[in-house]
């Protein structure tokens, strides 16, 4: 049944070259290929993103980092289906992704992403009802409870969003996004508006949740430390237009601590990358030692 559905959707994706489609169809996870986005603002054409390639295997945690205004959010919105890329393709499990759907759930930065007229529990349960993920009202509430427990909010089920702290709201948003069982979780600087302490806590929590659910996560941030602590891969974007400067494999074992020497090096490397144009050497020359980080081999990088 679901197999038939999948095939019909594939056949609709006529713009994708047949060869690519066949090759990627077996791949689980997400692949972004040659994605570009231009738009007209104040009569001028702005190139927001150019030729973005990235991929995340199922269960992988990928962080995307870039300076402000580099189009990180636009990239995530293109993947989420809220914006139509000018060029390129987004494949989820080998299928071309179109408009918004529950296979790609976004967790936004904004605290007002929860529905204020619903309690924490109802916010999750309502999402379950709308998407018909779980049959029945009672079932939905039970499942919602479980997800709130997963994000550490047991006991806050009946709180309205305005009674929750910023960090708690983001936890509910994560629970809600996870509850509908997406193929991939798109997180748009979800901890960007939190204080440093809460942020650290939530990073640890998110790592735990990710490990427990083994969901694929694409996580946008402008914080180098956060990118390193969370990501298996770190996609570094350049500013205007946003291009992939490098995609680094994170060698640090979890749990990661900023005190580790390697952490500092990686930090420095990313920092340098953010200041350089694409094509610069991926590495850092420090007075006492020289470290080179392994780049991820993203298939079919446009110019290499």
């Amino acid at each position: 049944m679901s197999h038939v559905l999948r095939e019909s959707q594939v056949s609709q994706a006529s713009r994708v070259p047949q060869a690519v489609q066949v090759r990627e169809a077996s791949e689980a996870g997400i692949v972004v290929r040659g994605l570009g986005k231009r738009f007209i603002a104040a009569g001028r054409e702005i190139v927001a993103l150019e030729n973005i390639d990235l991929s995340a295997a199922t269960g992988e945690f990928v962080t995307i980092i870039g300076p402000s205004g580099c189009g990180k959010t636009t990239l995530l919105r293109c993947i989420g289906g809220f914006e139509r890329p000018t060029s390129g393709t987004v494949l989820v499990d080998g299928r071309v992704a179109g408009g918004p759907g529950t296979d790609r759930m976004i967790v936004f930065q904004s605290f007002d992403q929860l529905f204020p007229w619903l309690t924490a529990l109802e916010n999750v349960a309502r999402a379950l009802r709308i998407t018909r993920t779980v049959p029945g009202v009672a079932e939905s509430r039970r499942a919602a409870c479980a997800y709130l427990e997963l994000v550490g909010l047991s006991g806050y089920e009946d709180f309205f969003p305005h009674q929750l702290s910023g960090g708690m709201k983001q936890r509910v948003a994560i629970a809600r996004a996870l509850s509908v069982r997406p193929r991939i979780l798109l997180m748009d600087e979800p901890f960007g508006s939190l204080d440093a302490f809460t942020r650290t806590t939530l990073q640890d929590e998110l790592t735990r949740i990710w490990q427990e659910t083994s969901v694929t996560i694409l996580f946008v941030t402008h914080n180098i430390e956060e990118a390193i602590i969370l990501g298996d891969q770190i996609v570094v974007l350049t500013a205007r237009p946003g291009r992939v400067a490098a995609t680094l494999r994170n060698p640090l074992p979890r749990p990661r601590s900023p005190e580790a020497a390697l952490f500092c090096d990686l930090w420095q490397a990313i920092h340098n990358l953010l200041g350089f144009r694409r094509g610069a050497r991926v590495g850092v020359a420090l007075p006492h030692r020289r470290v080179v980080f392994e780049e991820v081999d993203v298939p079919q990088l446009a110019t290499r």
């Binding site: 989420g80 809220f82 408009g99 918004p100 759907g101 529950t102 790609r104 759930m105 976004i106 936004f108 904004s110 007002d112 992403q113 529905f115 204020p116 007229w117 309502r126 999402a127 709308i130 998407t131 809600r176 509908v180």
Partner: peptide, 26 residues
Amino acid sequence: PATQIEVGRNLGLRGLHLVAEVLIPG
């Protein structure tokens, strides 16, 4: 808030469903 509307769309709500579930309560 645009975010809430996008959450609704993300959950697959369209047209009148989106109005009833998100816009009217909002």
